[in-house]
Design a protein around this nucleic acid. Structure first.
Length: 271
DNA sequence: AAAAGCCCCTGGATGC
DNA sequence: TGCATCCAGGGGCTTT
């Protein structure tokens, strides 16, 4: 589910509220994608200093060590003053003096992982190969071109891989490629510098708009305050197979790429 | 080295 | 109502 906008909106919704909170207890439900990596009691007494984001990971910096959270496909966080009884899909609670951060994740593709520092093996394994942050000025065009060069895979697949640019998932990849006028199947290496520049702008634009909308809520996403997103109402091609393209009127097409759905306009998006 | 498949898991929608 | 099938926002791991 959550792509960069949803993760960032989530971060913004609880970062300042949890900062300074001292960890009182950790509750684990059913297993998530990876084990926590330490005894839950080991975290007691530590203080959450700040919450950062890297790609789709949330990094909770503690006064000693850090927690990496990932929302997977169906995860969402809530942050409340008190700790309600856990539901069947609530698999991680971080109870602090400021409130309780809870991961709700029916499919359990999400994770909460402890690392001693960012260079620690568990963190390194997850973070080392991540690409550029699309919303930072450091999202450099020349570097982007360089990372796409030599890659014969379809541009949509390369975007989803996250090693060139992070945070672009299935919704925003389709949307950005539509905005840039690029067919999802074009081999990444065949894109001209001009088209890569358009794609870079499109990614920033789409993610920025989605962020302003509070993300997309397809089914059940909400930020840590329970606020739902509305960008799903703004999509131009995603989940619109058969509908008329808003630019040219042609029927939006649906195809499968690597077991994921891709949506595109056969007229506006050139091969 | 890069690309393509395969899984992990639950639940909702659809069709018979 | 029940059951089978397919699909869903991700991404690490294994196999080509």
């Amino acid at each position: 589910m959550p792509e960069l906008p949803e993760v960032e909106v989530t971060r913004l919704s609880f970062a300042s509220r949890i900062a300074g909170g001292r960890i009182e207890s950790v509750r684990l439900g059913k297993p998530l994608r990876w084990p926590l990596g330490c005894e839950p009691d080991h975290l007691r007494g530590r203080v959450v200093q700040q919450v950062r984001r890297r790609g789709k990971y949330l990094l909770l910096d503690l006064d000693k060590g850090l927690l990496l959270l990932h929302l997977g496909m169906s995860g969402s966080l809530s942050f409340r003053r008190k700790q309600p009884l856990p539901g069947r899909h609530d698999h991680f609670d971080l109870a602090t003096s400021r409130g309780v951060l809870r991961l709700h994740d029916p499919r359990r593709f999400g994770a909460a992982v402890y690392a001693r520092d960012e260079g620690d093996a568990p963190a390194q394994k997850l973070l080392a190969k991540l690409g550029m942050e699309p919303l930072l000025d450091s999202f450099d065009l020349a570097r982007f071109c360089q990372l796409l060069k030599g890659r014969t895979a379809a541009i949509k697949q390369v975007l989803l891989a996250g090693d060139a640019v992070v945070g672009v998932g299935n919704i925003y990849a389709s949307e950005a490629l539509f905005l840039a006028g690029i067919r999802p199947t074009v081999p990444a290496t065949r894109l001209s510098r001009v088209r890569v520049a358009r794609l870079r702008e499109a990614i920033r634009s789409v993610l920025g708009q989605a962020l302003a909308c509070g993300g997309s809520t397809l089914r059940d996403f909400s930020d840590a305050s329970g606020q739902r997103g509305c960008f799903q109402l703004e999509t131009k091609v995603y989940d619109r197979a058969g509908e008329a393209c808003l630019s040219c009127g042609a029927a939006i097409k649906l195809m499968r790429q690597g077991q994921r759905s891709s949506y595109y306009c056969p007229v506006c998006q050139r091969p």
